[in-house]
Amino acid sequence: MSARFPVARPRRLRRTPALRRLVAETRLAPADLVLPMFVKEGLGEPAPIASMPGVYQHTRDSLRKAAHEAVEAGVGGLILFGIPAVKDAAGSGADAPDGVVQTALRDLASDLGDAAVVMTDLCLDEFTDHGHCGLLTDAGEIDNDATLERYASVAVAQARAGADVVAPSGMMDGQVAAIRAALDGAGFPELPILGYSAKYASAYYGPFRDAAECAPRFGDRATHQQDPANADESIREILLDLEEGADMVMVKPAGAYLDVVRRVRDTVDVPVAAYQVSGEYAMIEAAARNGWLDRERTIDESLIAIRRAGADIVLTYWATEVAQRLAR
């Protein structure tokens, strides 16, 4: 039987910052963090994103500079999102050899070597003129199986340009299997896949659609992204992706789905990522600017919560800032 007050005094271990650090159950480290980055074709200088203060659409040169800054701070990885100058119904820029993402990948591969993991978001929404994640039928609906062929082609193009990890985010049925088969057939059997396996149809993505210029021209993405009411479904999606060949899995968004992160962590024995999305970032920045929250404490608390829930890897727009602060 455990001791009781006055013998048991848990506050003894909370008395000083040094003691609290020593007995902390959950820790943040720069290597746990992945920085999402936007690169836009044709920009002359970095373009600030109004709904995400401190985040930019990058030029090729500014992307390289920001990537160096992140890596020097110890950030474990980067994930690239590209915005092409020209969009079309098939998202042709997504797998073009000289497309915006492939060009950026070659730049970063040359600059960074193996200093950090360079991931690529693998989807079509940034590249299609209709803003949806896949090809459309004549009736304006997503053609799941035809989209898989496009994803397979994009994966090979990204691999050839130097991606360390490809991360399919479209939530198409069978996407991981199609991508794995394409990568293996093209001579990239060792390239890992990070599945956006439990991705919800969330209201928290609003600022991202400004950043990536990918808001749907009509309709929404509820036919392929998950219903926020469902958690069991996430486990099914996770297990399907692992059966198809995913090496890591992701829950997105993070903050409103910590219960899902915990359930996934308890279910699988592969690395689990969670994406602290644009809306989470924007809310904290807005509240801090109004003096309603202590900015740094809130950022740190939000990230610790994601790690405590069981995420091994956290995608966050604060990755560089937090990594620099942890190094102090």
Rank of each mutant, 00 (worst) to 15 (best):
P17Q: 09
L303R: 02
E126W: 03
A181D: 15
F81C: 14
T59C: 13
G91D: 04
W292G: 10
R297D: 11
L258W: 06
L194I: 10
A47D: 11
F208V: 02
L135F: 10
A222F: 14
A177F: 14
A109M: 02
R60F: 10
D173E: 14
D114S: 15
E296I: 07
E213D: 14
C133T: 11
V268N: 01
V75R: 08
P97S: 08
V154C: 08
D300W: 12
L240W: 14
V23G: 04
R325A: 01
A246R: 03
V100G: 01
Q175A: 04
G310T: 08
R4K: 10
I193T: 09
A70T: 11
A31T: 15
R308Y: 11
N230K: 14
R9F: 01
P17V: 11
Q276P: 00
Y204Q: 02
M283A: 04
A229K: 11
L80E: 13
R263H: 12
D114C: 06
D259T: 08
T103Q: 13
P10I: 10
T128Y: 05
V166S: 11
L240Q: 14
D227E: 03
H224T: 13
Y196W: 15
G134Q: 06
A155G: 09
L136A: 03
L183D: 10
A305F: 15
K199D: 06
E41N: 10
G42Q: 04
E280R: 03
P97D: 12
L35N: 01
P271R: 02
E296S: 12
A70H: 06
K87H: 06
L122I: 08
A85Q: 08
A8C: 13
P6E: 07
G91W: 02
D32V: 13
D232W: 11
R209H: 07
V156R: 01
L33S: 06
